[in-house]
Simulated assay, not measured.
Amino acid sequence: MERRNALKTLAGALGGLVALPGWATGWTAESVQLTKSFLPADQIETLAAVVDTIIPATDTPGAKELNVSQFIQKVVADCYDKAAQDALSNGLVLTNDLAQKAYGKPFGGGDATQRTDLLKQMEQSTEPAQATFIKLVKPLTIRGYLNSEYVMTNLTHYEFIPGHYHGCVPVKK
């Protein structure tokens, strides 16, 4: 009886391994696009400015160029509860309000130093809404950036199947 269970398990594992490449390569840009955003347009622009402030462009593209803000919207819309969605939306409004009070312009209109200072102030704040917003956005920004196609292929040199076997290589004497 144990041999039968072992054969069933082996057949299931083999079927999964055969189906895995077709499933993984079936993803397209259209299939992972955010179909309907729960954020208004002005908050989307603020979110793009926030992720650009957290990971700005240097000699490599920044988070804004790699569309990390779309990643955050997709993850929060699909995987987080209504409270987290509200925390993101309210945090973006709060970020714009704080920037308006401090610098007389919206968050995206400030220069890099002003935006960085404002985010640091929010991170060190004891107000729960500010702390919750930063604790939500900052890790998602880092995760989205590190999992982007550009970073995975050009910076970390990700291999889909690690430990590739190179059978025919020149041997030195």
Rank of each mutant, 00 (worst) to 15 (best):
Y145W: 13
N154G: 02
Q43H: 13
K36H: 02
P106M: 05
E159R: 09
A99Y: 03
K105F: 00
E45W: 00
D52W: 00
C168A: 12
E2K: 07
S125I: 04
E123N: 11
L94V: 08
Q121L: 15
L98C: 09
A77V: 01
L88D: 10
G26I: 00
L7M: 04
F71Q: 08
Q33Y: 00
K172T: 06
G22Q: 03
A29G: 02
Q121S: 15
V51A: 06
N5P: 00
E30Q: 06
A63G: 11
G110M: 03
L94N: 15
E127L: 10
Y103A: 03
V151G: 02
R143T: 12
A41K: 07
T141V: 06
K82I: 07
D59R: 15
T141N: 04
K101N: 14
Q73H: 09
L17M: 13
A48I: 03
G104L: 01
L66P: 12
P40V: 07
H166F: 08
I142M: 13
S31P: 00
T53N: 02
K172R: 02
D86K: 09
T9W: 06
N5G: 00
L7D: 03
K101L: 15
T126V: 10
L146E: 09
I142H: 08
D42G: 02
L17S: 04
L88Y: 08
